[in-house]
Design a protein around this nucleic acid. Structure first.
Lengths: 191, 191
DNA sequence: ACCTGAACACCGTTCAAGT
DNA sequence: ACCTGAACACCGTTCAAGT
């Protein structure tokens, strides 16, 4: 038997679309451009994703799932909150290092008012997932702190890291990201 | 003599465009929509702003100028770094309170790869202006700190506040902004 | 099951033409 | 000086038609 070499068009579209959104945002996503990249016609893209909103929601959903899986792995690997936070910050750094890309959900948050409802829902879930994980990490580092304070601090860390990525990207200078994360650590915002 | 009642179309276009960009981003800006809003044809908008890039750059330039003027006023009004930071955070809060809008340059940073060069230049200037002001404020609060550290911390504060705005906006919950800023203060990131 | 061409109302931009 | 209609190549979406 031959291996399954036939390109899965649905996958090819999602891969191309993910790169475009992380670089140029949801609004810049074009079914015609996407079609050209994967070698089909734009009408065929609609066969896999009836609307642009369906594609955007599928992208965000998978992005959250893959992120959650990786974060769960981190959590299982080490009990050291500081090491986990290091790895966490490294994820957002990797996007910048990869052609100045941005967190898929961060860039989509900026475009919020142009997002179909189903895409917004997925963006929300991504934030929830991140804050949930950060709360767990914080509860290890500061076990005596109340759940409410923990969650607020987790949200603050998530926002601060998204912001560091946004600003460093705007300045096309990954050094800004590194120095900003260092400053967050120095002040004690990040364990 | 009559007062000058004739609507300045250039101004009307900029006002409408500013609101659109702060809500939906640069990509969502449409010359045809803009034209309808101010009551002329889209070809006439091109008379005032030859390209979309010209309009975007004009918007960002004015945004920076107006921001700089307001921040200079704050600096002259009080010597209290903590009070100044309070007012600073209030500026970004006001955008959220005003129909969940975002910092013009923050939203444009997210769309960076789709921005014409002249718009990028203005986005850079906005960040520089903010970091410069924050550095001055910090030098008051921590006079013994070196210039380099001061600038890094100023950049971190700018990034953290932009991030708080981005995430709160994404969640359509201004309370997230307030709690996040509070957490920044508690940890000592913000004076 | 998957793809296509053609049509629709949109987009930024250009340009010759109007006042 | 300021505005316009018409044209161009783009866009997402729909749909009847092909295999």
């Amino acid at each position: 038997m031959m291996a399954k070499t036939k390109t899965d068009m649905r996958e090819a579209v999602m891969t191309a679309a993910k790169a475009t959104v992380q670089s140029r945002g949801y609004n810049a996503l074009s079914f015609r451009e996407l079609a050209k990249e994967v070698g089909i016609k734009s009408a065929s893209v609609h066969y896999h994703f009836p609307t642009k909103g369906d594609l955007g929601a599928a992208l965000a959903r998978r992005y959250t799932e893959e992120g959650a899986a990786y974060l769960a792995e981190l959590l299982a690997t080490s009990n050291d909150a500081s090491w986990c936070m290091d790895r966490y910050a490294a994820i957002f750094r990797a996007a910048l290092a990869n052609d100045n890309r941005m967190c898929l959900c961060g860039i989509m948050s900026a475009e919020l008012d142009d997002l179909p409802a189903e895409v917004r829902t997925e963006v929300d879930r991504f934030a929830e997932m991140n804050v949930g994980w950060l709360t767990q990490i914080l509860s290890r580092a500061r076990p005596s702190t109340g759940e409410q304070d923990l969650q607020e601090c987790a949200m603050a860390i998530f926002a601060a890291i998204e912001g560091a990525q946004l600003v460093a990207r705007g300045c096309r200078d990954i050094g800004i990201y590194d120095r900003t994360i260092r400053a967050y650590r120095t002040t004690g915002l990040i364990p």
